[in-house]
């Protein structure tokens, strides 16, 4: 049975901040920070935005591109490490806001930056087993880096929603494979506002080991090699890691550049590979093959072997909601405004 992507929508908040603006506050050289991380700017959520609003905006874009009955959506999973509620699902609010209630199952996922791809896997399973007609998988974050921490230069906001189904599939999911270990490279304890991380430990034993293993194992399972793919999207915590991972795996810069958005919008965590994939689908042609590998700290990778179908030709991509047009609409803010929007300024109590 052919299970795959029926529609998708990405959303990135309009505000941006440059690394130089952050660096100046902490007495750091912004230029070297920018170069070191491969980051020109990162997105900042507005004061009235959170994972739920981002998820709803993305979900509505996905729905606006196809003609399906929202009551046929049988599952909604929202993956994020920054759900507005610790207890109270984001997914129920999204379900209500897109008119999918009440005949569906819904839950929130958390697996650092790969909770969104975990949601796609679950939806694929439900759709593939005929338990539901359509499933919606969303990855979205308004991630926070502690002020002054290296993460502050990259942690950003954005998300994407995917409708998974069997009919009118624009991109078929040929195979998905995951690679999971207990690797504490990045975490946030209950009740803590900002995450902690293991510094350089987040590199080799964490990001690279999982991404590379996951991608290589997938290619071995399906019998492909890097040159079989037109595009590759790797998790992109900064502008450097995914390019380096691609090189180690034998992918070219050209294969990854289309889905590499972190240099402009920062690391949208659970949204990262999903927004990258959206950018690829915005331009992909029938029969294009896409490799997508997510990484979530803690740690694990989800890889996907995807083939674009003929359906993409009639799919509505000519709207103002392509990733490039969404990213084009932006406004740079100062660190002070950023601090205000991110709730780092404390107002007096009511």
């Amino acid at each position: 049975m052919e299970v795959g992507i029926v529609s998708y929508g990405a959303y990135v908040p309009r505000f941006r901040i440059k690394p130089h603006e952050i660096a100046e506050v902490w007495g750091v050289d912004g230029e070297s920070m920018s170069k070191g991380l491969g980051i020109k700017s990162k997105s900042v959520p507005g004061p009235d935005e959170d994972v739920i609003t981002i998820a709803v905006e993305a979900a509505r874009i996905a729905l606006s591109r196809i003609d399906i009955d929202t009551s046929d959506i049988g599952s909604i999973y929202v993956g994020s490490e920054s759900h507005p509620y610790a207890v109270k699902p984001s997914a129920t609010i999204v379900a209500e806001a897109i008119g999918a209630t009440p005949d569906l199952t819904a839950a929130d996922y958390e697996f650092a930056c790969k909770a969104g791809t975990a949601a796609i896997q679950t939806c694929s399973g439900l759709v593939g087993s005929n338990a539901i007609r359509y499933g919606m998988a969303i990855g979205a974050d308004t991630s926070q880096g502690a002020p002054g921490d290296a993460l502050e230069y990259t942690a950003s906001a954005g998300g994407a929603a995917y409708i998974i189904g069997r009919e009118n599939v624009i991109a078929k999911i040929n195979k998905t494979y995951s690679y999971t270990t207990d690797t504490p490279d990045f975490w946030r304890r209950e009740g803590e506002k900002y995450p902690s991380h293991g510094g350089r430990f987040t590199g080799e034993p964490a990001y690279f080991k999982h991404i590379l293993s996951c991608a290589n194992n997938l290619m071995e399972i399906v019998g492909t090699k890097p040159s079989d793919y037109d595009y590759a999207v790797f998790h992109q915590p900064n502008g450097k890691f995914p390019v380096s991972a691609a090189k180690k795996l034998g992918f070219s810069k050209e294969q990854v550049s289309c889905g590499l958005l972190t240099p402009v919008i920062g690391n949208t965590y659970s949204g990262a590979v999903l927004i990258g994939l959206a950018a690829v689908l915005d331009v992909a042609k029938p029969n294009d093959r896409i490799m997508m590998v997510a990484y979530g700290s803690g740690a694990g990778s989800d890889s996907f072997d995807i083939s674009v179908t003929d359906e993409i030709k009639t799919f509505n991509r000519n709207d103002s909601n392509t990733v490039s047009s969404i990213i084009q609409n932006h406004k740079f803010v100062s660190y002070a405004t950023y601090a205000k929007y991110m709730g780092k300024i404390h107002l007096r109590g009511a």
Binding site: D48, D50, T53, V56, I93, A97
Partner: peptide
């Protein structure tokens, strides 16, 4: 229309969403 937070009952209360 857009979907946004329109209020909350303090830091520990319910968040209200709606149209802008």
């Amino acid at each position: 229309p857009a979907f946004r937070k329109i209020g909350e009952d303090g830091k520990s209360g319910v968040i209200y969403y709606g149209y802008k």
